[in-house]
């Protein structure tokens, strides 16, 4: 009978919906499991290091010389990472927000519609490529401008990292600016504000949590970045408080030294240890950023 056919069909549809929702659910579970496994793997492999090397010496040690005298002081790497990251933030945040405001609010439509896709493509350039470009352009530039003997410095790393995070910061900030309801702009203009006043008194504050999320996500990229900084920061694991000296970040250390270690050895385990630290920091940054992004989605 015909209506029976229909009934069957709708049953199939229900089954399909069930499958799809299960599929999404399973994907979610898988990613959580994978994340958990990574964490477990990091902990497992760094266990040897944390159990045999005094934690205090690790966290406050000022020397990282794993091969010469088995010193695993975390401070130089942390300072290196912070220096490079901080410099990158200093460059990328104002620049990124500025460009986003220009594209989102002030640029003529044609400029906006050309720039936006270009910027989104820039975000996909692999960091090795950017590192190489940085090596050929930023490094000599820094060397010449500050007349240094070597251009492989924290500053060079900051510049290239800033470039790397800019597309993320710009494109998400611009989304946030775009999401500001036009009614608010009109209300402000109708009260006699000009375009600029409307932009910085109404649009930017309204988009601020989105802009903050953009900055956090950009930050996530900066902190987790390896190849580019490995290539151009000079790779010197000493504590230096100058942007014009070579430094070494956590990620660069892992990448540079992993090949030379004995699997299962203390050095090997120590690299997993700093990897664990990095994992937690990156996870927290992205987690926070994500919560911001969600909050904005809920508002708009």
């Amino acid at each position: 009978m015909l209506w029976m056919e229909k009934f069957k069909k709708s049953k199939f549809r229900i089954f399909k919906t069930f499958l799809i929702s299960k599929f999404v659910f399973i994907n979610g579970i898988i990613s959580i499991v994978v994340l958990g496994l990574i964490l477990a793997f990091l902990i497992y492999n760094s266990l040897k290091f944390f159990s045999s090397y005094p934690f205090f010496d690790f966290i406050s040690g000022t020397r990282w010389s794993p091969t010469v005298n088995e010193k695993f002081g975390f401070v130089p790497l942390m300072v290196g990472s912070l220096e490079v990251a901080f410099g990158a933030i200093l460059i990328a945040v104002p620049l990124g927000i500025g460009v986003a405001i220009y594209i989102g609010e002030l640029a003529p439509r044609l400029v906006r519609e050309t720039l936006k896709p270009i910027i989104e493509v820039l975000a996909t350039i692999p960091s090795v490529v950017l590192g190489f470009i940085g090596l050929k352009t930023v490094v000599p530039f820094v060397k010449n401008i500050f007349s240094l003997s070597i251009g492989l410095t924290a500053l060079s790393g900051s510049i290239i990292l800033a470039f790397m995070s800019l597309p993320t910061i710009i494109s998400i900030s611009e989304d946030a600016i775009n999401a500001v309801p036009n009614g608010l702009r009109n209300a402000s203009l109708a009260l006699g504000a000009n375009k600029w006043e409307t932009t910085y008194k109404i649009v930017v504050p309204t988009a601020s949590s989105g802009i903050l999320a953009a900055v956090m996500l950009g930050l996530g990229r900066i902190i987790g970045e390896t190849m580019a900084v490995l290539m151009i920061t000079g790779n010197s694991p000493r504590i230096v408080f100058s942007w014009l000296q070579p430094v070494r970040t956590i990620t660069a250390t892992i990448a540079a030294e992993m090949g030379e270690t004995v699997q299962g050895g203390l050095h090997y385990s120590a690299l997993f240890g700093i990897g664990l630290v990095l994992f937690l920091v990156t996870f927290l940054t992205n987690f926070t950023a994500d919560r911001f992004v969600n909050r904005i989605r809920n508002i708009i």
């Binding site: 009614g183 009109n186 109404i202 309204t206």
Partner: peptide
């Protein structure tokens, strides 16, 4: 305006 548009 037609829709109330207070600033946030």
């Amino acid at each position: 305006f037609q829709r109330p548009n207070p600033f946030p």
